[in-house]
């Protein structure tokens, strides 16, 4: 596969490490959320046959974490974003 890195352009998937569902960005706040919320965050994932937003890490590159929107059936990649931008857009800060 080829991932179009928002900064570095087309890169071979071999340069990346895969983590999984981009929902991992939405970590609850440990001081307010309870075990239930963290359990859901740590263990529960959708497993769609189709469009999937997922985290890839450019380990053999610039160390960017990316959110890749990929169709798990066709492997078509629709969108690649910096995870930092996605996190900020979802209201994450410090």
């Amino acid at each position: 596969m080829i991932i179009h890195h928002p900064i570095l352009g087309p890169r071979d998937a071999q340069e990346f490490v895969y983590l999984g569902d981009a929902g991992l960005i939405n970590r609850p706040d440990g001081m307010t959320a309870g075990i239930e919320a963290f359990h859901d965050y740590a263990y529960n994932r959708d497993n769609p046959a189709g469009e999937h937003r997922e985290l890839w890490y450019h380990e053999q590159g610039d160390r960017s974490w990316l959110v890749v929107t990929r169709n798990t059936v066709t492997h078509e990649i629709k969108k690649v974003e910096l995870a930092r931008d996605v996190a900020r857009a979802q209201g994450r800060s410090k």
Binding site: L24, V86, A87, R88
Partner: peptide
């Protein structure tokens, strides 16, 4: 060594992007 660094980058970029 490698996986801790990867994890720290995840925390820094994905969880607390403005730190």
């Amino acid at each position: 060594a490698v996986t801790v660094f990867r994890h720290l980058e995840f925390c820094r970029q994905c969880l607390w992007p403005d730190m």
